[in-house]
Amino acid sequence: MNIFRFFGDLSHLASIFILIHKITTTRSCRGISFKTQALYVTVFVTRYLDLFTSYVSLYNTVMKIFFIASSCYILYLMRVRYRPTNDPSIDTFRLEYLVGPCVVLALIFNYGYNPTELLWSFSIFLESVAILPQLFMLQRTGEAETITTHYLAALGAYRALYIPNWIYRYFSEGYVDPISVTAGLVQTGLYLDFFYVYFTKVLQGQKFELPA
């Protein structure tokens, strides 16, 4: 554990709390992609299956349980409690374009041909593109509530912080995980456009609006 990874994980936790706060205080999940949230449940469940087989640390176990539970809770909020505020007609990204290639990539790039490793690898690839339905929705509507942009910024910061974490681990432990690093770089790259607008507009007190 190093400071980059720790703050990355905190940022990830913060993003989830911001999202739950947004949905429950506005009593609406407007602007949030259900597809992206469903993909995160898939990511966490497939990756954290090792909860039952390998123990890393109490921190690790608690975080895994939290991520699975909170992502399921968000789906419940969107699908049941605040269902009328969820508008599927603007959440139109085709999931098969994401899931299909991730299955293929996992079959090619993995650390072992067994169910746990294949699902782990699949979850890494899927996480790297899981935000796309959300970003696509943002692009379509051209604007977002400020709280939603804070959620995305915290999520992007989590990914960005994992990069110095890997650099640090390479020098301190000689540890390199090429699958995580490659997928992580792609994932962080997807946030670059968003971050540009976030820094130049939202943090200057303006509304998040994309140029027409």
């Binding site: 990874r5 994980d9 990830h12 990756r47 090792d50 390998s54 890393v56 640390s57 690790n60 975080m63 895994k64 991520f67 650390y111 072992g112 490793e117 782990w120 994992y162 974490n165 540890y175 390199v176 995980d177 090429p178 699958i179 995580s180």
Partner: peptide
Amino acid sequence: DPSSQSHDEL
């Protein structure tokens, strides 16, 4: 081999 470290990242 990264898998031997049992994927300690979240």
